[in-house]
Amino acid sequence: MSIRRAVTEDALAMAEIAYEAYAAYLPRLGGQRPAPMDDDYRVLAEAAETWIIESGSGEVCGFLVLDGDLLKNLAVRPSWQGRGIGRRLLALAEDRVRSSGGHLIRLYTNEAMVENQRLYERAGYVETRRGHEDGFARVFYEKRLR
Rank of each mutant, 00 (worst) to 15 (best):
R5N: 03
I17A: 02
D67Q: 13
V126D: 06
L145V: 13
M1W: 02
R83A: 13
A93F: 08
S55N: 05
L119D: 03
G124D: 14
R118S: 08
L104M: 09
M1D: 06
R33Q: 10
T50H: 10
G30E: 01
A18Y: 02
A91P: 09
G62R: 04
R118K: 15
D10M: 05
M113N: 15
I105Y: 03
I52P: 02
E54K: 14
G58S: 05
G86W: 02
V126H: 12
G31F: 07
V114T: 15
D39G: 02
Y141N: 05
V7F: 11
R138C: 01
A15E: 09
E121P: 01
M37G: 00
D38S: 09
A18V: 00
E46H: 03
Y125I: 02
R87S: 13
A11R: 10
V126P: 12
A123W: 06
S55I: 07
H103S: 15
E133S: 09
L104F: 13
F63Y: 08
D39P: 13
D39M: 12
R138M: 05
A137I: 03
D69Y: 10
Y25N: 03
Y120S: 05
S100W: 15
L26Y: 03
D67H: 13
D69M: 04
E94W: 00
A13I: 02
N110T: 14
D134F: 12
Y19K: 10
G56C: 11
L66E: 05
E142Y: 06
A23G: 07
L64R: 03
A11Y: 03
L104R: 08
L26P: 10
L71A: 08
S99R: 07
R122Y: 00
E46W: 07
A13H: 02
H103P: 04
D39L: 04
R88H: 14
L107C: 02
R118G: 01
Y141K: 00
E49N: 10
A21P: 09
Y120R: 08
G68E: 08
E111W: 13
L74A: 12
Y108L: 10
I17T: 06
R118E: 05
R122E: 11
N116F: 01
E94A: 08
A123N: 11
P78Y: 13
A6M: 10
V7Y: 09
C61E: 15
D95G: 09
R88Q: 14
R122P: 04
L44E: 10
R96I: 07
G56D: 14
H132S: 12
M37Y: 00
A13D: 04
A48Y: 15
L89F: 03
Q81V: 09
D95C: 03
M14S: 14
E16A: 11
R130W: 01
V126T: 14
A137V: 06
D95S: 07
T109S: 11
A18H: 02
F136T: 07
E121M: 12
L70I: 13
P34A: 02
Y19W: 12
G62H: 09
R118M: 09
D10G: 10
L119F: 00
V114K: 15
